[in-house]
Each structure stands twice: as C-alpha cells, then as structure tokens.
C-alpha cells in the first residue's frame, strides 16, 4: 500500500460540509456531544475512535438517517438540519453493515440503487457493469447477494454507494472484519476515488488506516472530538521526541520503575515488546542498559523507534490503540459484518 494522500486539500479550502455543535442524545447517553468540524473539498477526513465513540451516530445525522438534538449541518451550502433530504443527492453512504437486498443479484442490486437516484436504464446498466469490473466482481454479477462472501459484500456495498457518482462519500468502517488482502484493495479503491475528485468522510478504528489514507483526522472519544488536525500537524507534535524501545530476555514489569526512579526526566511505558522510553532530548542507552542489568533484568535488544500516529493518539486520548483494535475484532467475530 503506497502512502497516498489527497493532494487537492490544503488550508484555505472550500468546505463541503460544515457541522457546528452537533449533539445527539439517546435517553441518558450523549452519543455525540457538541462536535464541530468541516469537510473540505478533496479531503479524506478520518473519524478515528473506539467502540461507542459516536462515529456511526455522526454519519447517521449527516446523511439524514437520524435527527440531531441540537447543532447545525450544512452541506454544499444547503441547510440539512431541518431538511435532511436537501443534500441527499450529493452524498453516497456505505454503512458499517451491508444493507443491500439479499434476494437480488449483484448486478440487480446496483441497478436498483442507481434507479433510486433517477438514473435511466441504459446508463444504470452501463454503470453497474463498469463498477462490477472495477471491484473485481464481474464473475459474480448474476449471483444472489446473499451468497457473497463478506469481502465481496463489502465491495458491492461500496459500489452501490458510489453508483450515482456522489461528490461526497461516507464510509463507516470500510475495512473492519475482512481479510488483509481485501482491506488493502478497498483502501486503494478509496484512494483512487479521492484522486478522481470524491471527498471522503471515513470512520475507522485502525490508526494505520487513518494515517495512510487520510489527510485530516478527528479523534473522537465518548462523543467528543478531542482533536482535529492534518496528519502532518499531528505528527509534528512528536517531532524531536526521542524514543527507545527495550526488549528483555524474560518478561518483567519492574523495568519502568527502576528507570523512572533513577532518571526522573524520562518517560517510560510498557509496550507489548517490553518497554518504551521517551524524552525530548537524545536518550543515552548505555546507562539505562547498565541500570537494568544491575537490577537483574537482562536486556535482549535496544532500538531507536520513530513515533507514529498511534503514539499521538494514545497521548491525546489516553486510550491504548491496541486495546481498541482487539475489542473491535472480538465484537466483529461475534456479530456479522
């Protein structure tokens, strides 16, 4: 997967969607809590957050499936707060679970979806055929949707979302619950769509996905946006930050304790491989190794590592990214994608 960033988006951009203090409550839960952001033309805007953060609820409000309790939504200058239908011809939606018709074939599903946007028969058939080709589903075009595999279902659902060539596309966790190869293919398709001019709003809990694909990212936790910025700016926070990762011969949970006691200026956290030591200044490895070995901890490896978006996410939200992913996979195994 190449790192493909939208190059159309820069700072003073025409915004396609403007959201101001959007709030949604379900009984006692505030699912979305006064969030504000804009989606600029050409963006791949990533909405990154754990389970129950409010990602789907936000998409539902933006697409007209749910009514906000307060706040405003403007899409392409049209006020969609009161009239959610106003901008529906401009948007395509790919939900987290497929909502196509199980009894129809892949081809018929696409044709039907196209007809909902008033596309004439000849064009419908052409467009459906073209998309089936692009998504590598030509062979299965006449098979019933109910017999498709998960990955095929997801691809067809994306095809259905773009059948009417919408300028704005909403994707709710497009790669969750499908195999690595299909996920890769889908990311490539998303990147291609964007370079052909589609503005994309994407929710995900895969940090690497957001980092690779998106040019702007919002971190959402418990219905609140903690931070919105370009990937470059987010990464800039960590510039100059030095990190060294230590792996040990035998597992230990004392290492950080020893290090912080002796070197209070360093930060230390446990990671799956061992520990990670951070500092704004260059870190000298020798004294640390000696300290650990004096305390009976045998160091197997010490290496300099470079901060990733994951580190930024953990720092800003306080959520361990790894845990977020695991929890999600568990959920998806239980349910159906």
């Amino acid at each position: 997967m190449t790192k493909q960033k939208s190059n159309q988006a820069d700072d003073n951009q025409e915004s396609l969607i403007d959201v101001v203090r959007l709030t949604k409550k379900f009984e006692d839960i505030t699912a979305v809590d006064e969030i504000s952001f804009s989606l600029n033309r050409g963006d791949i805007f990533g909405f990154l957050g754990p389970n129950g953060a409010g990602k789907t609820t936000t998409i539902n409000m933006l697409t007209g499936l749910s009514r906000p309790d307060s706040g405003t939504i403007k899409a392409a200058g049209l006020d969609c707060t009161k009239n959610p239908k106003a901008a529906q011809h401009l948007i395509g939606v790919v939900p987290d679970e497929s909502n196509l018709y199980p009894e129809l074939s892949g081809f018929d599903n696409l044709c039907f979806c196209a007809s909902l946007y008033g596309i004439r028969k000849k064009e419908r058939c052409e467009r459906a055929g073209e998309l089936l080709q692009v998504f590598g589903l030509k062979e299965s075009a006449n098979r019933k949707f109910s017999g498709y595999s998960k990955g095929m279902k997801r691809k067809l659902t994306i095809a259905a979302g773009i059948i009417h060539r919408p300028p704005i596309l909403f994707l709710d966790e497009p790669t969750t619950g499908i195999d690595v190869a299909s996920a890769r293919q889908i990311r490539q398709l998303i990147a291609n769509l964007n370079s052909n001019g589609t503005t994309i709003f994407l929710t995900t809990h895969y940090i690497e996905e957001a980092e690779r694909l998106c040019n702007r990212i919002a971190f959402i936790v418990n219905g609140r946006i903690n931070r919105i910025d370009t990937v470059e700016n987010l990464m800039r926070r960590t510039q100059g930050q030095q990190m060294v990762q230590f792996a040990f011969q035998t597992a230990t949970n004392k290492a950080c304790e020893y290090i912080i006691a002796k070197f209070p200026n360093l930060r230390c956290k446990t990671v799956s491989e061992g520990i990670c030591v951070e500092s704004p200044q260059p870190i000298r490895v020798g004294p640390l190794v000696r300290l650990l070995e004096d305390n009976g901890i045998e160091v197997a490896e010490a290496k300099k590592i470079f901060p990733t978006l994951e580190d930024v996410f953990v720092e800003i939200t306080g959520i361990e990214a790894r845990m977020m992913k695991q929890e999600k996979e568990k959920m998806k195994m239980g349910g159906n994608a």
Partner: peptide, 14 residues
C-alpha cells in the same frame, strides 16, 4: 429489520 429500508431513506426522494 434487514436495514435495506435505510437505503430508501437515503435516496433523494421525499
């Protein structure tokens, strides 16, 4: 129940 109704609600028709 099968959620395909959502697709209809998303279509730009009243």
């Amino acid at each position: 129940k099968g959620r395909s109704f959502e697709r209809l609600l998303l279509a730009p028709i009243s």
